[in-house]
């Protein structure tokens, strides 16, 4: 039997395998380059960037929870210009897909970021963050209202040229399908779902919240069932490729998301659990496909009997 086909064809983008890493869990890629070959990944999504540098939220910003963690980092980043100047030239962008994750507080700013990043040959796609729960302005506020989500998507798409646009959806909504449709109707090429779930943790003895921000975003294996449900709903609502994100830690998780209809996946918190997780996955996925008699991801995708 020949080696299984792991490649994924997306609008304007072909991945050598379905394994990407999620924004905010993989730095600028460089932090992980001693743990594996960045070029062996399907791609990686850079830490969310804004036009101006941001210092993020006060500490403590992270808390471990059962089968997961909370974070309220608040999009600390060096700013788009520093990313372009200092990070992009060091990335193996010819060999793997480097995706820029964009954060802004208005549709106009999103448009400005899109212009800056879409012009860069290193950037294979733009991911629009309308789902960060940890910032006061923008973020999830855009992702919780179909009209706003549509406006932001349109602002980025209109200035992205040929660079494909991914819209990252929030699970913290009443009807994720409605947001997905708004993004699709306004030019999104793909959707990634999901971002973190809003949560909190407290210290009983001290009677304090465990995050300075009080609320944070829950990630890790605890949210995988929510992510699978969202991918399933979104795939039924819109005819766009979906990138599954949420608690994915092993090859079996990856294939479960493909089964439910995802084209590719992003590995998030599992990068913290062990920094070579993403690098090991393509081989483990191929081995599992082999074991299950699956020749290609296309053959498995969306075949859930439901």
């Amino acid at each position: 039997m020949s080696a299984p086909d792991l490649s994924v064809r997306l609008p304007g983008l072909t991945l050598k395998n379905p394994v990407l890493t999620a924004s905010g869990t993989f730095g600028y890629g460089l932090e992980f380059s001693v743990y594996g070959d960045l070029a062996s990944l399907g791609g990686f999504v850079l830490k969310g960037m804004s036009l101006a540098p941001r210092e993020g939220n006060p500490m403590p910003r992270v808390a471990e929870t059962a089968c997961g963690m909370l974070n309220a980092v608040g999009l600390q980043n060096v700013g788009a210009e520093a990313v372009i100047r200092e990070k992009l030239p060091r990335l193996p962008w010819r060999e793997t897909a480097v995706v820029a994750n964009l954060y802004a507080t208005s549709a106009d700013e999103f448009g400005e970021l899109a212009v800056l990043l879409a012009a860069r040959p290193e950037i294979a796609a733009l991911e629009v963050n309308i789902s960060c729960p940890n910032v006061r302005h923008g973020g999830a506020a855009f992702g919780q209202d179909p009209e706003q989500a549509g406006l932001v998507t349109r602002a980025v798409k209109d200035r992205a040229g040929k660079t494909p646009v991914i819209v990252k959806l929030s699970p913290n909504v009443t009807d994720i399908a409605a947001i997905a449709r708004a993004a699709a109707d306004n030019g999104a090429d793909m959707l990634s779902c999901i971002n973190t779930l809003t949560g909190m943790a407290v210290d009983l003895e001290r009677r304090t919240p465990r995050l300075a921000n009080v609320f944070g975003g829950l990630s890790g294996p605890a949210i995988k069932p929510v992510a699978l449900r969202c991918v399933h709903q979104v795939r039924r609502a819109v005819d766009l490729p979906v990138i599954g994100v949420g608690g994915i830690a092993c090859a079996r998780d990856v294939l479960e998301f493909i089964l439910v209809g995802a084209h590719a996946v992003q590995i998030g918190t599992a990068n913290f659990t062990r920094p070579d997780t993403a690098f090991r996955l393509p081989g483990e996925i191929a081995a599992l496909m082999d074991k299950l008699g699956i020749q290609s991801l296309d053959e498995l995708r969306g075949t859930l009997k439901a």
Binding site: P60, R61, V62, A63, E64, M69, N71, T269
Partner: peptide, 28 residues
């Protein structure tokens, strides 16, 4: 020693203010 998730500079959980007020990772 600050609480950290990854140890490699990615999670931004262990940051501490430097002398200029910038938040830098304790791990890296």
């Amino acid at each position: 020693e600050n609480r950290m998730a990854c140890g490699v500079g990615a999670c931004l959980g262990c940051v501490t203010p430097d002398a200029d007020g910038h938040r830098v990772q304790v791990c890296t």
